[in-house]
Design a protein around this nucleic acid. Structure first.
Lengths: 210, 210
DNA sequence: TGCATCTTTGCACTTAGTGTAGCAATATGA
DNA sequence: TCATATTGCTACACTAAGTGCAAAGATGCA
């Protein structure tokens, strides 16, 4: 979970406690991911994950409400970053351009590799639910963002549809990318992901005249 | 669960057993909805729902894997209908037009009222996950449908983005509709929902040139 | 160092979810 | 109509999820 460290925007809350908590959180999430790599959900338990992460079962639940939630944290982190990037864009910039840039302002290769892996490992419906929720929460935040940046009184349906389409397109780009590259995250496949994200948003912008 | 009855497309499997099962399923889902109407998820248990539906706890789990899944069945039914409507459209028709028609070919007012209610009652993240999954499964089906109807060799990113945008727009229409009308399902609000669905798809078609 | 604050842990408890085997209802064929 | 095969329902037992609580341990601060 390199998110807090790589984005010291909020006063750098790098106290010992914060560091410890971040490390614990990451350890748990990684342990959960590791179990998923070698089997499906019902081949291991929360106790297993907790033990592997070196914490008690109770502490696991202090950080995540379930294994699924722990695995979804990687996606969550990426989307949180997208929001940060989005809010860093200049106010005058067209919204779809901001979205294009924010979505493809991807982190380092290692984090992205894990993100790609979660795509692979969360085909199980039980797991995919939590990914979907992460995207949905992101939608809500972007809608709020868009409402602030658009002219006052912009039609709500227009707003929601725009954001819904952007998120739908973003997920589409990730999905197609993953279908083509799997968990292979080279520099080349990364740049392809950026291309796909940009292409998807471009399609949204242009529309689909038949 | 009027779905099987109202769509006797598949040889009318109306045997006694089928009828009983459909009735039980509906009873369970309605019982779950009823408990949600008067409190949140953790104010009642599966046992409560089973008892209210007049079945054993074990039978509940024979039909649904959780209370959340039971509540999501209403959305599921609507989206299943959308797929049926979609597949009934002529092959030559432009895809977005088919989608527009299929999405707004809504069932009767009573079923829609319940659908609207589930929008209201599933703001709880625990519940919304299952709604999101229903929409996502619908996406997958529509993507397959679109692949079949588009020229062979159509770009996959184009396909996924188009479908992602359509589903995003569809959900946006429902959301805005619900935000405006709540669970009030009159003839007028229904026709507004149809308008919103059509408007959303139109936006997708036109695109968002800034 | 001593005290206040926050985090982790163990324990006990309720509820979720599932395998299994027997029982009840429906279907089928004469 | 009856006998029998098939399918669904139920009770029971069991593992694991998730949570409240209070004590112990770690960190922050003066």
């Amino acid at each position: 979970m390199s998110f807090p460290a790589s984005h010291p925007l909020t006063v750098a809350p790098t106290s010992r406690r914060e560091l410890n908590k971040a490390a614990t959180r990451e350890a748990i999430a990684l342990a959960a991911l590791d179990f998923l790599r070698s089997g499906d959900l019902n081949t291991f338990t929360v106790d297993d994950v907790a033990e592997a992460a070196g914490v008690s079962r109770r502490t696991f639940f202090n950080y995540f409400s379930s294994v699924e939630a722990a695995v979804a944290s990687f996606t969550q982190n990426y989307l949180d970053q997208v929001i940060v990037e989005l809010e860093a864009r200049p106010a005058g910039e067209p919204l779809l351009e901001s979205a294009q840039i924010a979505l493809s302002a991807l982190g380092n290769a290692h984090d992205l590799g894990i993100l790609a892996e979660t795509f692979a490992l969360t085909q199980d419906p039980q797991l995919s639910r939590f990914q979907l929720q992460a995207w949905d929460e992101c939608s809500t935040k972007i809608t709020q963002f868009a409402r602030d940046r658009m002219p006052a009184g912009t039609d709500e349906l227009f707003l929601f549809t725009l954001v819904g389409a952007v998120i739908g397109g973003g997920r589409a780009a990730f999905l197609v990318w993953f279908l083509e590259h799997g968990t292979d995250v080279t520099q080349a496949s990364l740049s392809d992901l950026r291309n796909k994200l940009q292409a998807a948003i471009s399609l949204i912008r242009q529309g689909f005249p038949n």
